[in-house]
Design a protein around this nucleic acid. Structure first.
Length: 660
DNA sequence: GAGCACTGC
């Protein structure tokens, strides 16, 4: 492994601090306490990454791939693309790309493009070699999101065809070596021309302060209770400073806040302000997290993983880490994605602890034992690609002309079962042909629409059925987490509000009613409030719908309304979701259904307008599994539509399921 | 009568 630095500058340091204990954040001076005055240039020079400018540029010049190990706050994301531009990498009509797993609000430099991994993947559909870019920087690669992994695999391929392309991968310490191994394409005694193929690793320190770590002596049986009592003792014994508590979901968070309020009341403790934080929270409530803590008070933020990567909170001095988060797991045999509370990795634990050291030295209280951390916790989490349904991923690779999906060189390979399942689903949708090639035009069109292929297929079908106006609304609503406001204690009112829009045909049609009402109200937030509808979610529906409208126009498909012909709408939905059909068990007293495809026991989700209605045949949008398998968002269908929509899928194997 | 970590086009 090679490292380069310029004599006279500080030698780059390869951090290797995978052990627990005090985090090895190094911070050079008091300069980290803010920018003070001075020119913009001076400010840039004070960022930790500045010291490595020459080393980074030298490495990029001489290496095909450079891996930058950098802690948060080093300034790498904003500065490195700028250094590259100043060094001439954006000259001669070339550009620099910097990708993130999430959207980022950064200033757009000319000839430097900040974009998400997913968007860059989309760009490859028009420009497979990404030929307009001279350097591509993949930021936060250690998060191993689905799109990041696909992108890394493709970049490695592109590098073979474009030796002049430079890749920068910014990653946390723990992943750096495996990234380097993945991109090391150098063969022994190979005559090297141009940049060396062996990746360089550079390490840049962050701006964080030391965080002292504490563990519990014995395993805790109830992390919510334990988190609350830890908060109480921090409040008792530690100096002022806000507390961030990592829990797994809304339920945990609500319970914890209730417990804390009770305990503070019964013990007469004052000065604690609890704030919940999770993605489903209405915007106004989320903003409370950022409001300054009143003088003499201590803010306690109870958060999901959203505070681990997506949001940065200022003023946190104490972190309480439950050691758990909700994670998605996919079972290719049952074709079901589950959200499960699972132990986090050491990498996550480090990231969480680091949240305590942004303003001054902090403390992190881990609600698990040191022995557990050292001996049982996995070093890194399972990459998303090994925990997901791969239908979207496979169609994207197919669209990029990658035929041998099973032989693709991944940073981490998904299971063959998942890939085969994805191929089967795409085949049944008519997107792939017998040779596993994209069909024309359906396959290419579905690949062009950046949504779940089942949804894309539904949209294409709606054009034939003449109900695309309605279907793109439904597609937009389905891509939003929830349009209802999550409210505890006023469940009854929410249910009543829902009834105002409920359609006998099911949830999708109900969504259409909500959308119509929202438009008729002139997109009023008051109207949303009155009807327990999430205003921001509805704005988002409008936005996504506009995008879908543009995409359909680009595909040369006109929008058309079916003017209230609901049966047509349901047929279009069935054309995409025929595989998700279920039939009510005869004589079932508890609403048990069986899926037509695999005879799995499933139930209508209590949030559905068809809950307790239990029609004989239904099609569902997705399954969510807890103690039971629940079907979310269902519509009634006529079973004959299934054979109409997918004769190849149903005629052979399942005709015996149909009573009529 | 249950629950939804996150993200994107």
């Amino acid at each position: 492994m090679s490292q380069f630095w310029k004599p006279g500058t500080e030698r780059p340091r390869l951090v290797d601090d995978e052990e627990g204990g005090v985090l090895l954040y190094t911070t050079s001076s008091s300069s980290s306490s803010g920018f003070g005055y001075g020119s913009l240039e001076k400010q840039r020079q004070r960022l930790p990454v500045y010291k490595y400018k020459t080393a980074i540029l030298y490495s990029v010049e001489t290496h095909a791939t450079t891996i930058i190990v950098g802690e948060t706050g080093s300034g790498k994301t904003t500065q490195i693309p700028q250094y590259l531009k100043e060094a001439g990498w954006a000259e001669g009509g070339r550009m620099i790309a910097c990708t993130q797993p999430r959207r980022l609000a950064v200033q757009e430099l000319t000839r430097v493009k900040f974009l998400t991994d997913g968007v860059l993947l989309r760009e490859m559909m028009d420009d497979p070699l990404l030929s307009k870019y001279s350097v591509i920087m993949v930021d936060e690669a250690h998060e191993r999101s689905l799109s990041t992994d696909i992108l890394l695999g493709l970049l490695k391929k592109i590098q073979r065809r474009r030796p002049e392309l430079r890749i920068i991968i910014s990653s946390a310490t723990i992943e750096a070596k495996s990234m380097a191994a993945f991109f090391n394409t150098r063969r022994r005694r190979e005559e090297e021309q141009g940049p060396t193929k062996e990746p360089a690793i550079l390490s840049v320190e962050g701006r964080g302060f030391n965080v002292e770590i504490f563990y519990v002596d014995d395993p805790v049986s109830d992390y919510v209770r334990s988190a609350v009592s830890t908060v109480m003792s921090i409040h008792d014994q530690e100096r002022m400073g806000d507390i961030l508590v990592f829990l797994t979901g809304q339920d945990d968070i609500d319970t914890a806040i209730q417990l804390l309020t009770e305990e503070a009341q019964s013990s007469g403790k004052q000065g604690l302000v609890s704030v919940p934080l999770y993605s489903g929270l209405p915007r106004a409530d989320q903003d409370l997290v950022f409001s300054p803590t009143p003088r003499g008070k201590r803010k306690v933020i109870f958060s999901t993983n959203i505070a681990e990567t997506s949001l940065t909170l200022e003023g946190i001095v104490y972190v309480v880490d439950s050691g758990f988060s909700k994670q998605r797991f996919y079972n290719p045999i049952s074709d079901i994605e589950n959200l499960v509370v699972a132990p986090i990795s050491k990498a996550s634990a480090r990231q969480r602890a680091g949240r305590a050291g942004r303003v001054r030295p902090g403390k992190c209280f881990r609600l698990y034992t040191e022995d557990y951390f050292s001996n049982e916790m996995s070093v890194v989490g399972i990459p998303e690609i090994q925990r997901s349904n791969l239908v979207s991923c496979v169609i994207q690779l197919k669209a990029l002309g990658i035929d041998n999906i099973l032989g693709f060189d991944w940073p981490a390979s998904p299971s063959p079962e998942s890939m085969i399942r994805a191929l089967e689903v795409l085949y049944s949708l008519g997107v792939l042909d017998d040779d596993a090639k994209l069909t024309s035009p359906t396959g290419f069109q579905v690949a062009e629409i950046p949504l779940d292929p089942l949804i894309s297929k539904m949209i294409l079908a709606s054009c034939e059925f003449g109900c695309s106006e309605e279907i793109i609304t439904i597609a937009a609503v389905l891509s939003i987490q929830s349009i209802w406001i999550p409210v505890r204690g006023v469940q009854k009112q929410l249910d009543e509000a829902k009834l105002r829009f409920a359609a006998a045909e099911g949830d999708h049609v109900t969504f259409l009613n909500v959308y119509k009402g929202f438009i008729q109200s002139n997109k009023s937030s008051k109207w949303c409030h009155k009807n327990f509808i999430n205003y921001h979610a509805m704005r988002k529906v409008i936005e996504v719908r506009e995008q879908l409208k543009k995409i359909t126009q680009r595909l040369g498909i006109g929008l058309k309304s079916c003017e209230g012909d609901i049966q047509t709408i349901k047929k279009a939905i069935t054309a995409g979701f025929f595989a998700n059909a279920a039939r009510l068990e005869p004589f079932s007293h508890n609403g048990m259904y069986k899926t037509l495809r695999t005879s799995q026991e499933v139930y209508i989700h209590p949030s559905s307008v068809l809950f307790r209605v239990n029609p004989k045949f239904i099609v569902y949008h997705s399954l969510v599994s807890t103690d039971r398998q629940y079907m979310r968002n269902v519509i009634t269908i006529d079973p004959s539509w299934l054979t109409e929509a997918a004769p190849h899928f149903y005629q052979k194997q399942l005709h015996s399921s149909f009573p009529q």
